[in-house]
Design a protein around this nucleic acid. Structure first.
Lengths: 198, 198
DNA sequence: GTCTATAGGTGGATAGAC
DNA sequence: GTCTATCCACCTATAGAC
């Protein structure tokens, strides 16, 4: 876990490469849909070595959510820093999801939410934290948009935020079987347009 | 597969009881999250007997989607027959989802959509058919609402229908980790209200 | 940090008696 | 239609050498 080596062109360290492969596998096949053997085959290191880095599958899952949540928070900070009005921020937020779907993946936590009841309790807690963080950020943007009079939605900003999160997670879920990013983009646009309507 | 016996208080036949248990297990834990052993333990019949009724797990899955789709179509027919305007129909449509979530289940096909890439191709096709049927019904209701001037949404009726389906599937997905049906109901109301806005 | 080897369990599925 | 018994592949995880 020493992070990326400082020399140019160097590969990420082993733990990072494991997380990269595991993350893609969870996002495409689910936590119950992949095994250490899958990672082993792809990286060319034995299952025993994987256990050296992540002792149990639950611990691997916990590390995955942690990293994903941190990356998402960082992405939201970037969205904020690029400025623009609330509508522009929401469009960039939607783009984050769209890029995931383009690789035929689901949101990591959206996938894990489907498998929620089969997951260890610590993972369940982290999944809710991810959704909570997204709702909080979205609610802030909704507030910003209302103060600027560009959003005219009903209900609390928090409620609108939850609706947005739900709609985007669902749009990914439904679009993927059709391998159709446009399906997602269309649904997202519908929802965003609705926010501006009186 | 002889259907419900005609005598009063008689139990459903074995195939039906297997489907009932398997359906709940898929909706709560996913297709990759349950096993024949789980059904066996709950019904008190051996795994070998289960294989007599459904030779493979894929065949069991196919039967589950088929039955679920038929039940859903029947429910939509009832929604239509009870009449009312398009808004009333959509509210009853939302209630169908809400009843599923109340039992801490996801939509069967929503759950399977998450696991999509791990499923046999015949199941994948049936999942898309389920979504297609829902979109078609919803597009019809959207059209009805527009002709009656109670919906003022943008985009084609089909696009609005896809957005609705996505939002509802996603609202179930996100609400379940919180065991909070109100979260779903709130998101659903947000979306429906948006349809009426100009 | 990676390996070989293996434990101990569970997965879906089958054969054949009753 | 249900059972016992069994197969074999795969699962997560560990022990211990290098």
């Amino acid at each position: 876990m020493t992070g990326r080596p400082s020399v140019r062109d160097a590969q990420p360290d082993t733990a990072t490469r494991i997380l990269d492969v595991a993350e893609r596998l969870v996002q495409t096949s689910g936590f119950n849909g992949f095994s250490y053997a899958d990672i082993s085959a792809e990286l060319g290191i034995t299952k025993a070595s994987l256990h050296h880095h992540f002792a149990t599958k639950a611990e691997l899952g916990r590390a995955l959510i942690e990293r994903y949540s941190e990356a998402f928070s960082a992405a939201l900070k970037l969205v904020d820093q690029r400025g623009g009005d609330a509508a522009a921020k929401l469009e960039r937020y939607v783009k984050l999801y769209e890029e995931v779907l383009r690789e035929e993946r689901l949101c990591l936590c959206g996938m894990l939410a489907a498998e929620y009841s089969t997951l260890p309790e610590p993972l369940q807690k982290e999944i809710r934290r991810f959704f909570d963080a997204n709702e909080t950020w979205l609610a802030g943007v909704i507030d910003q948009g209302r103060r600027a009079r560009i959003f005219h939605s009903r209900g609390s900003a928090r409620e609108v935020a939850r609706m947005l999160l739900s709609a985007l997670e669902g749009a990914m879920l439904v679009a993927r079987p059709y391998s159709d990013v446009a399906r997602f983009a269309s649904a997202a646009r519908q929802v965003l347009t609705g926010l501006a309507a009186k």
